[in-house]
């Protein structure tokens, strides 16, 4: 009886250690889609808010810092802007507000819903040239990863990557100088 209780407790302890949430990785959120349809000669500075750091005992999140890195790398790879500045001054400000990142608390198949509100502001004129809220959704099948928290992280990363892809396509369509 005591051995069984010990085994159960050991199982719980192992689950606690194995199931620690890890943050979404910038490299997995970076889109490597085709080059932008239109490449602006301007520079842009990024301002991200609404993200959250990941607590090891809670479900994975996306932090402002990691989403900023993913945005920067995606813009650089696509060539949508000539330069991504790490601080002002820049020709444009791209403001991204992560308003929603929703996933279940448990389950086999994990569906992640993400919504990011973007604003692109022309700094010289101090006027918004584009504003849009982009929603993306990704469902992670149960066989994608063993641990639930890993499936949530994979879902977060895919939803973020798709979101950035859509943003880049819309910004390219603006044909900024």
């Amino acid at each position: 009886m005591i051995n069984r209780v010990s085994l159960l407790l050991l199982g719980c302890a192992c689950a606690l250690v194995a199931g620690c949430a890890t943050p979404s990785r910038p490299e997995a959120m970076t889109t490597s889609a085709a080059a932008a349809a239109h490449k602006s000669a301007a520079s842009v500075v990024l301002e991200v808010s609404g993200g959250r750091p990941t607590s090891s005992t809670y479900v994975p999140q996306i932090s402002n810092e990691d989403f900023t890195v993913a945005l920067r790398r995606s813009i650089e790879q696509s060539g949508a802007f000539a330069r991504v500045a790490t601080a002002p001054p820049a020709d444009y400000r791209l403001i991204a507000y992560i308003g929603q990142l929703d996933s279940p608390m448990m389950g086999m198949t994990v569906r992640v819903d993400m919504e990011v509100g973007y604003q692109l502001i022309e700094v010289a004129a101090n006027r918004p040239v584009w504003r849009k809220s982009i929603k993306t959704q990704y469902t992670v099948p149960s066989d994608k990863a063993y641990a639930f928290v890993d499936r949530v992280r994979i879902g977060n990363e895919a939803a973020a990557r798709m979101n950035i892809e859509q943003m880049l396509a819309e910004v390219a369509a603006l044909k900024l100088p």
Partner: peptide
């Protein structure tokens, strides 16, 4: 060891309450 395992198991079940809020710029 058993005591540690009990504490770890209780910790896994109990958790902590959290609240977060953010506002768009």
């Amino acid at each position: 060891l058993r005591l540690w395992l009990i504490v770890a198991a209780l910790g896994a079940l109990a958790g902590c309450s959290t609240q977060s809020v953010s506002h768009a710029p």
